[in-house]
Design a protein around this nucleic acid. Sequence first.
DNA 1: CTATAATTATGTTTTAGAGCACAAAAGTAG
DNA 2: CTACTTTTGTGCTCTAAAACATAATTATAG
Lengths: 228, 228
Amino acid sequence: MTLNEISESIADLWHPLNEEQRAMLAKEFTIQRFKKNEIIYCEGDQPTHIMCLLSGKVKIYKDGVGGRTQIIRMIRPVEYFAYRAYFANEEYVTAAAAFEPSVICMFPMKIITQLITENNELARFFIRQLSIDLGIADERTVSLTQKHIRGRLAEALLFLKESYGVEEDESTLSIYLSREDLANLSNMTTSNAIRTLSNFAAEKLITIDGRKIKLIDEDRLKKISKIG
Amino acid sequence: MTLNEISESIADLWHPLNEEQRAMLAKEFTIQRFKKNEIIYCEGDQPTHIMCLLSGKVKIYKDGVGGRTQIIRMIRPVEYFAYRAYFANEEYVTAAAAFEPSVICMFPMKIITQLITENNELARFFIRQLSIDLGIADERTVSLTQKHIRGRLAEALLFLKESYGVEEDESTLSIYLSREDLANLSNMTTSNAIRTLSNFAAEKLITIDGRKIKLIDEDRLKKISKIG
DNA sequence: CTATAATTATGTTTTAGAGCACAAAAGTAG
DNA sequence: CTACTTTTGTGCTCTAAAACATAATTATAG
């Protein structure tokens, strides 16, 4: 795979650049494949590359006290990630792992920072992206701390539809998560995720078939998410 | 007050600029004073200005479900705030209010974005700042959701010392918060903040005299914060 | 100075959600 | 196919923290 072949995919990064800058980037990228559940980077690692998810699904998470894990955000194609720590001059404070087989394009942050210095549009791309993510983080903090279990799970289900879409039937979530991941996403224990999911099914808000989740009554889910 | 007189204070913004750019900024700034507890901006407002806290103390907060409020972050002199939403092309998702009488310098975001386009160092300042804040937000999400009350309160107390420092005695926190604000900062009810604070005092970790809080055994507070 | 409101303090009750135990089902490996 | 591990499902118990009640204290306003 050449960078030209994927230039459509990495448009946010690629588009602002001039010929010379593109050539520079083209020399330095690598493509890496990750298996299901494979770890991409760990908390404490030194960041060196910005990553662009070309295909697959990736979770950014953080292990907290008492063995509990919180999924901080999720990445879909074609999104950039893993660059924050480098910009902040820190080690990674989160870890990343692939939910499913994923293909990731990596560019050395050294090159990226150089390109940012030369290219203002690129700088503005990162300012915008970081600003959006910070807003999401702020919203999420309040949701996770204040909403009740049902509200948090409803929010997570709606978020998954929003982020990864649905299958041809227009209602089955395209992402198949374990109950544990669903719990880690919505800040609850696995048993509560299982229980609440069953309740939702009993209330005909969703149907469940193993890891396949179909959203039936989205309006009511939205209401549950909203009132917390 | 002229912008030249405060140029030391607003160094992060001021320093990267050339003469022409400084002149441009100098024409457009305003200074505003806020009383104790006065609201600076509200959730849903349209952002128009970046703000720089010259003196005082400011809280960024968010009202969630059921009348509960979460303090998202706190601003000390000389920090910039209120710019994220503009960069993300959103309305404010948070609100801001002054803890104590505060002086704030405001620059139109229109000018700032123009300066960013012209001046790469300024762009990099915002990239760095947003990256740092996003990291803090990620850490905070996990602390607030996973740590127990004691851990969260200990963390908040240590954070207040870190951020606003102590008085001449080297141990009294320089910021005097109501129990309610302390609760909103550490995601608990006011009565639990009061109770836990009393417990800490009984355990000789701190002493309390009204709103004056003295950290006595910081090591143990750190341990409590760490283990959650 | 007095009246009223807001804040702080403490005790008691209630409950949401964690924790644990165990069984059934579904994957996975040999 | 069989053995073993992981995941899912359900019931029960327990506890951290919210919710409520009521004083006592401290601000604030008139």
